[in-house]
Amino acid sequence: MEHNPWKTLKIKPIYNNPWIRLEEHDVLNPAGKEGIYGKVHFKNKAMGIIPIDKNGNTWLVGQYRYTLKEYSWEIPMGGGPIGQDLLESAKRELKEETGLVAEKWTELLRIHTSNSVTDEEGFVYLAEDLTQLDTEFEETEVLQIKKLPLQEAVSMVMNGEITDAISIAGILKAARVLGL
């Protein structure tokens, strides 16, 4: 039977900004003992896009990730405010980061990125029937764009060159769905 064995006694706000809220929860754990639980609440849904052209190519986006202090290759992705249409947010992110516009969209997966401390929820879409336009980078984005066969992106996942969780899940699911 699926039920919540935790009891929340009190929630104390610790930090809040436009993107996240950090809370400390006083709880009774499943054994009935008092404890604390830290929670990071995300104010946006994460979304990633696997664009695929008629030749089986996809696009990756490279950028320096401040929190990791390293360069990261990822699928095009971003955030959409909770309550806003997820697909519209995905379309916006694809256009901003790659200049691509897609006629056909398929939701590939829903993922929780780190369910032990956050409530972040991500979605990955497959984007097909592509048209190339100009990018529209945000002021915080210094991006490098790489077009490559999807199978090469799978190899980058398997050899550890791609470490972002949403990118890994999306690339592997797209390859499976497309029969690669």
Rank of each mutant, 00 (worst) to 15 (best):
D53Q: 00
R176Y: 15
N159L: 13
E152L: 09
Q144N: 14
K43C: 06
W19G: 12
S89G: 12
L100H: 06
L148F: 01
N17F: 06
S72Q: 14
K91G: 03
I75H: 02
E97N: 05
E2H: 15
G160W: 02
K147F: 00
W19D: 13
E97S: 05
A46R: 09
K43M: 07
N44V: 14
E103F: 01
S167T: 02
D26F: 09
T118N: 07
W73S: 05
E93D: 10
I50R: 01
K91I: 06
E23Q: 13
Q144L: 15
P18N: 13
W6Y: 05
V61L: 08
I50M: 03
E120K: 10
P149G: 08
E70I: 01
A90D: 01
Q132E: 08
D129Y: 04
L172E: 07
K45D: 06
V177G: 08
D85F: 10
A102I: 03
D134S: 14
W73N: 04
L150R: 01
K95W: 12
R110L: 07
A175Y: 08
W19H: 14
K33R: 13
K43P: 03
P81F: 13
P18A: 13
A165E: 09
A174T: 03
I145V: 13
L126R: 01
L68G: 12
S89F: 07
L126K: 02
E103C: 02
V142K: 12
R21C: 11
A46T: 09
D129S: 09
M156P: 00
G170H: 04
H112V: 09
F123D: 00
Q84G: 03
A175K: 07
Y64E: 05
E103Y: 02
Y71A: 11
N55E: 13
L108S: 01
L109Y: 03
L143F: 10
W19C: 11
R110P: 00
D26L: 11
D26K: 09
L86M: 09
E138N: 14
V157Y: 03
V142I: 11
V157I: 06
K43Y: 08
Y66C: 11
E2M: 15
Y66Q: 14
M158A: 13
E138K: 15
Q63G: 15
V124H: 00
L86N: 10
T106M: 07
H112E: 09
G170P: 03
P30G: 06
H41R: 10
I166R: 07
M1S: 13
